[in-house]
Amino acid sequence: MSELDSKFIKHEVAHHFESAEQEFDTAKLGMWTFLGQELLFFSALFVAYAVFRFLYPAMFLEAHRHLSVNMGFLNTIVLLISSFTMAMAIRSAQVSNKKHTFIYLLVTLVCAGMFMVVKYMEYMEKFHHGLLPGRWFTGEGTSEVLHIFFGLYFCLTGLHGIHVLIGMGLIIWLLIRTQKGEFYSEYYTPVEMVGLYWHLVDLVWIFLFPLLYLVG
């Protein structure tokens, strides 16, 4: 511990906890509960998706052809890699390896950035072809309600994108704290919590990809 002391800032347990372990378990429980609400938050959109797919199956079939499966697949791979590096960052923090923690977090951040760039390119292409929600829809298609698919597409991927952006903000915050040396074998709660969040963001995408890009 003495060797660690010099490299890391020692964490103080908050006054209302008995031990660091209790504090960690509490934070983890709170985070899982929060993730439960995140799932419910997305769930209503998935239900809306199901309802409209049931109402207009042919329209969904037509609409999904306007999406690029390659781009979606690329993004899936990028996010899966980022989930892996996130897990490795937590592992590194657990063994007090500051350098590796930092690198893995950075790779995760880069992956997240790549995801957003690809997403941006996809959005631009949709804008260009007028494949927009509701009133703004000017694209070509045989179905009269094609805009509903894009309404759902932009809501689902938009909300997911916002979550990725928030995640990127959190990872930057972790990077700064890692650099200061706040995370080590006895305190890595924030890394673990952001990790859980990041896996959820990944998971949501794992559902979005087949639902939006691989219809039919």
């Binding site: 929600p133 509701g134 009269e144 309600v145 759902l152 809501c155």
Partner: peptide
């Protein structure tokens, strides 16, 4: 933005 999920005039479903 009139995305047409709840608005019946755009094909949406107000009962949803």
């Amino acid at each position: 933005m009139n995305i047409g999920i709840f608005d019946p005039s755009l094909g949406g479903d107000p009962v949803l």
